[in-house]
Simulated assay, not measured.
Amino acid sequence: MKLQDILTEDCTSCAVPLSSKKKILEQICSIATSHIPEHSTFELLQSLLAREKMGSTGIGNGIAIPHGRLTGTNQVVAVLMTTEQPVAFDAIDNRAVDIFVALFVPEDCCKDHLSTLQSIAKLLSNKQINKKIRKCTSNHELYELINQAE
């Protein structure tokens, strides 16, 4: 599954003025709650934090793909967020992160989950796309950029 297949415009936030890993994860969960009403913001946050405890989801080059598995849901939800300033995120290359693509997936969809993560990582390995993402100034512009990306 591609990011374009699961991302909605209301789950896209551009140039958010947050400066800590925890605040960013909380904001991501707050946004996702509207699409996963059977789970609270706290439950969503716990799913992301459980994954972060296994190792940072900061994949390098200023990008993180936090993700969590959820019981009692059958849909995949993505949240795309950029921050005004890069934030320390314990990424594998020790660089601060300013592009976040979060995924919330059903617990029993492991295979789909991995292919979606691969698809997102491939998209974000394109330096031109990342440059354009970082230049976006509105949620709509960011959403449209992703929708038009190959």
Rank of each mutant, 00 (worst) to 15 (best):
L3S: 08
Q4M: 04
D5H: 14
T8L: 09
C11I: 07
C11N: 14
C11V: 11
V16S: 02
L18K: 03
L25M: 09
Q27A: 07
I28W: 03
I28P: 01
I28E: 00
S30H: 14
S30T: 15
T33Y: 00
H35D: 02
I36L: 08
E38N: 11
Q46A: 08
M54L: 15
G62M: 04
A64Y: 05
I65Y: 01
I65D: 00
P66T: 12
R69T: 07
T71V: 06
Q75M: 02
V77K: 02
V77I: 12
A78C: 13
M81R: 08
T83I: 01
T83W: 02
Q85I: 12
F89W: 10
A91S: 15
D93W: 11
N94I: 05
N94K: 13
N94H: 14
R95Y: 09
R95I: 00
R95S: 01
V97E: 01
D98W: 10
I99G: 05
F100V: 14
F100W: 08
F100M: 05
F104Y: 15
F104R: 10
V105A: 08
V105N: 03
C109H: 14
H113E: 07
H113L: 04
H113T: 12
L114C: 07
Q118P: 00
A121N: 08
K122I: 12
L124P: 08
I129S: 00
K131N: 11
R134P: 02
R134N: 12
H140L: 11
E144W: 04
E144R: 11
L145Y: 09
I146K: 00
I146Q: 00
E150K: 12
